[in-house]
């Protein structure tokens, strides 16, 4: 139930984000959601796209350093306390979150957040044991 994220190294230079995004658009690859983590001199662009393998290939061909990371997409109730409940489950199971970000689209009354866990398999098992929905690659792409 893990989904595929592309992580791309970007130097803190004018136009690099545009170059990366343009590389994908030229291939007709659609970005479903993204986030950027930054330090003083560089950033790491994290994207979820409809055709991840192709996306990585295109980026590498254009001189970017890119790698595929497995992450977990989780349904979160879109109401006060929805995220808190989810995080409590993770805490109880002592699962560490490296980073997280959200999809802009919703499924019915649920938002979708993506998590990078230190142990994705343990996280998935914990979430399922509490009947929290984990979203697969196809569902994420077809949102």
């Amino acid at each position: 139930m893990k989904i595929t994220q592309i992580s791309v190294f970007l130097e803190n230079k004018e136009g690099r984000l545009h170059d990366a995004v343009k590389t994908l658009s030229d291939k007709g690859i659609n970005i479903r959601t993204l986030t950027i983590a930054e330090s003083k001199d560089f950033g790491v662009l994290r994207i979820i796209v409809d055709r991840p393998e192709e996306a990585k290939e295109a980026l590498v061909a254009h001189g970017f350093v890119a790698r595929i990371t497995e992450i977990v997409a989780v349904e979160v109730d879109d109401r006060p306390g929805g995220l808190a409940r989810l995080l409590q489950v993770l805490q109880e199971h002592r699962i560490n979150i490296e980073y997280m970000y959200a999809f802009t689209e919703k499924r019915a009354d649920k938002g979708i957040m993506v998590f990078r866990f230190d142990d994705a398999d343990a996280a998935i098992a914990a979430l399922k044991s509490h009947s929290i929905g984990v979203v697969g690659q196809k569902d994420v792409v077809n949102l």
Binding site: Q5, V44, V60, V65, R67, T69
Partner: peptide
């Protein structure tokens, strides 16, 4: 120059 072998999606690892 960064290489794929030591690239990580986590900024802290790169730092």
């Amino acid at each position: 120059e960064l290489q794929e072998s030591f690239f990580s999606d986590e900024v802290k690892r790169l730092q």
